[in-house]
Write a protein that binds this DNA or RNA. Structure first.
Length: 426
RNA sequence: GGAGAGAUGACCGAGCGGUCGAAGGUGCACGAUUGGAAGUCGUGUGUACCCCGAAAGGGUACCGAGGGUUCAAAUCCCUCUCUCUCCGCCA
């Protein structure tokens, strides 16, 4: 969330930002709730002050009559306070709800636009793979290599689930280990995180677990959810704490499963492994000082580039437009890999890195102590190292050969223990 | 899952209806003493929100969390969470 005082001081900028993001939030309602809340708070505090004064006065020796007058006064105040407290609670809840709808401010350079087609290509590494034969898509390849089983997963678990088999299983583990080794070299602390988190943590990160369009699986009667990304568990790790300034930046690499409902995703490209309900991901997460977050954001992007360059996968980098940023992000870059099997060759998102500045830290209450002794909110950033399912698509489709086999990228061979996957079915 | 013990400020630890934002100690900061250091002495030392303001200042809340009793709760009652010990179960 944003700081209400920042909003008050920058009303027009906040309104413009909401328009730029094509979001639905009512700043004027928010401000009127804030003013109402404060008026009630003042009234309540005044009543409490009277109550304390009254109680204080009763410590001394009083006559019977005086004492009973005081007690009556106390009873009256008690009722007033109870009434005001109930009213305040209501207004505060409404205020919090509106405040949560206000998105983070956007980086001045973020392209203004509504949808992903308005994203700005900023860089290309490699060029779309050329084939001397008609390339297959990863679903076909996965079946002929006998490393992927979608049909049985549909029977057992439903659509958008999958089994990895044989070399597919190894390939996923190899990707995980490869990413973890690389992040370890870059100074990240490795973690395997829970796959479940409390609703309040989800909300702090900026997810809305409830509501019809929610992408989150909630667990019945638990107040918990299946996580959609380890960003949640890594961002919640230091909630309600004050970090030492000299321990920043903190870099975590989190391995977790990710669960997404993907309800209403029918119209979007969803063949095979691209849009699934469960996948495995290694996520980068950084807590840092405000003044270093922009540089660290670049660092996260360059690590993502390093990973996919070293896997010999052609990709481009796009800067996400305002309408596609999502509420918590100040700035976001996506890496899109070339996917030869997708609509006869298309770019498809494989990673994403966001600088969320202090938007998440404010709600999760993650601070550090500054030189002047003041507690300030940290900046929080996240980025995908490897999302296994999509990385597997990119590897299979780009590294397929005329005989139907798939070459394992050199960097991954030591992790796989094989350099080629050969067809089992014809 | 069952039985018991506990949760107080940066830390240790007292308090067990009104004199408690909270004794005492440790730590930390500043000052004095010293050639310097140790030591000693003195002073200060939480967070959040609201009001006012140039600054100073004032108010409210916070003693694991939530609810209750009372004119008044760290203190009494209820519920929950967490930690520790023992038992059970288990990968």
């Amino acid at each position: 969330m944003l700081d209400i005082r920042f909003i008050k001081d920058n009303l027009e900028a906040v309104r413009q930002n909401i328009r730029d993001r094509y979001m639905d939030a009512d700043v004027d309602l928010l401000i009127s709730l804030y003013d109402k809340k404060n008026a009630l708070l003042r009234e309540l505090e005044e009543s409490r002050r009277c109550r304390n004064e009254n109680a204080q006065a009763m410590k001394s020796n009083l006559s019977k009559e005086e004492r009973s007058i005081r007690i009556e006064e106390g009873k009256r105040l008690k009722e007033t306070i109870a009434r005001l407290e109930a009213e305040l609670q209501e207004v505060e809840a409404a205020f919090a709800e509106e405040l949560a709808k206000i998105p983070n401010m956007a980086h001045p350079q973020a392209p203004r636009g509504k949808e992903d087609k308005d994203n700005l290509e900023v860089k290309r590494v490699g060029s779309p793979t050329q084939f001397s034969f008609p390339p297959k898509d990863h679903v076909e390849l996965g079946q002929s290599l006998d490393i992927l089983d979608l049909d049985t997963a549909t029977k057992v678990s439903g659509t958008k689930f999958y089994y990895l088999k044989n070399e597919g299983t190894i390939l996923e583990l190899a990707l995980v280990r490869y990413a973890l080794d690389m992040l370890s070299k870059h100074g990240f602390t490795l973690m395997t995180t829970p796959d479940i988190a409390k609703t309040e943590i989800l909300e702090g990160i900026g997810f809305n677990p409830r509501g019809a369009e929610s992408n989150v699986y909630t667990l019945e009667g638990e107040g918990t959810c299946l996580i959609g990304t380890a960003e949640i568990t890594l961002g919640g790790y230091h909630s309600d704490s004050i970090l030492e300034k000299d321990q920043l930046p903190i870099r975590y690499a989190g391995l977790s499963h990710c669960f997404r409902r993907e309800a209403g995703a029918a119209g979007q490209f969803s063949k095979g492994l691209y849009r699934v309900h469960q996948f495995t991901k290694v996520e980068m997460f950084v807590y840092c000082l405000p003044e270093e977050s922009e540089a660290i954001h670049e660092e996260l992007r360059s690590i993502e580039e390093e990973i996919f360059s070293s896997l010999d996968i052609p990709f481009r980098v796009v800067e996400t437009c305002t309408g596609d940023l999502g509420a918590p992000a100040y700035r976001k870059w996506d890496l899109e890999a070339w996917m030869p099997g997708r609509n006869n060759g298309e770019w498809g998102e494989i990673t994403s890195t966001s600088n969320c500045t202090d938007y998440q830290a404010r709600r999760l209450n993650v601070r550090y102590r500054d030189k002047d002794g003041k507690n300030r909110f940290v900046h929080m950033l996240n980025g995908t190292a490897i999302a296994c399912s999509r990385a597997i698509i990119a590897i299979l489709e780009n590294h397929q050969q005329a005989d139907g086999s798939v070459r394992i990228p050199k960097a991954l061979v030591p992790y796989c223990g094989f350099d080629l996957i050969q067809p089992r079915h014809v």
